[in-house]
Design a protein around this nucleic acid. Sequence first.
DNA 1: AAAGATTGATTGCTCAATCTTC
DNA 2: GAAGATTGAGCAATCAATCTTT
Lengths: 165, 165
Amino acid sequence: MVDHGSTSTKTATQSSQAVVPEAWKHFVRAHAAVTRQMDADLIALHALTLRDYEVLLRLSQAPDRRLRPVDLAEGVVLTQSGITRLLAGLETAGWIERVSCSADRRVSYAQLTDSGQAKVRSAGKTHLEGIRMLFADNFSEAELETLGTLMERLPVRPGDPECLA
Amino acid sequence: MVDHGSTSTKTATQSSQAVVPEAWKHFVRAHAAVTRQMDADLIALHALTLRDYEVLLRLSQAPDRRLRPVDLAEGVVLTQSGITRLLAGLETAGWIERVSCSADRRVSYAQLTDSGQAKVRSAGKTHLEGIRMLFADNFSEAELETLGTLMERLPVRPGDPECLA
DNA sequence: AAAGATTGATTGCTCAATCTTC
DNA sequence: GAAGATTGAGCAATCAATCTTT
């Protein structure tokens, strides 16, 4: 509700109030549209959900190609039960296998199989193409870099759960 | 979609290849995290989903406070059946009512009620606060403006040649 | 007690099919 | 036939509760 010290001489309240929700609105809308198309492409060409792909990708980039489900969940912003069910699907597809941890018997790693590695490679081509066409091609290299740093600044976990009143 | 051929400058593009998926990754992750928190806040304080709120908001800004379901669906990136079910919920809550169109009897407008207007006002305070704390406060005014224009550039209906009003 | 993982019940959304009206 | 709206079936993700291990 407080004005930000407007830089322009437009109607002060109108402009400074509008800029914030406008940016947010475009952000949400763009994400939904682009994401939906990417998901459709991955499903059509590789029988793979966008979330599935992101999980496989993270595994392929992890040391020893394995991660704890709880870390995986945090990485793709999913609940623990969500990741359990997703991993179950990936396992029956043969793209991951479960490996129990000797140091902590509570955890059963998700480990990328060779088949999963092949899958993430082939699907990766489609996905990179999608990122390029639907997302990156709309920006210059510099803008992309800017976008990346800006996005990186947003809080990923509700670490400070100060509730709104 | 076929393969896009081999890249001739694999080594040279290695670093610039990384910037694209990085920007995208941060984009997706940030959206998921911020959106999730906003949704939780709205549910906790107003018994309202983020999508519910966005629909009510769009109605409150529409002429005569009413819109066709199909336009509403396009606005919040949902399928037609999705909007039907969402509107059903809003109607039983008393926030919208259905009004048949005299000019075209296929459409039944979603019309914001007074109760719905009150709801969107009170929830709007929470939501604006959420946008500020979770999103806008991480950026300067100039960055927000940049972000808005960049996001606006993304295609909302990829592949679709034209949008009919 | 707390952390990791899982399961049961529920919700919300999608696709495909259908109905009515243009 | 096409467009707008709806319904049935199915899937994916959530919350709450539970189990095991630390």
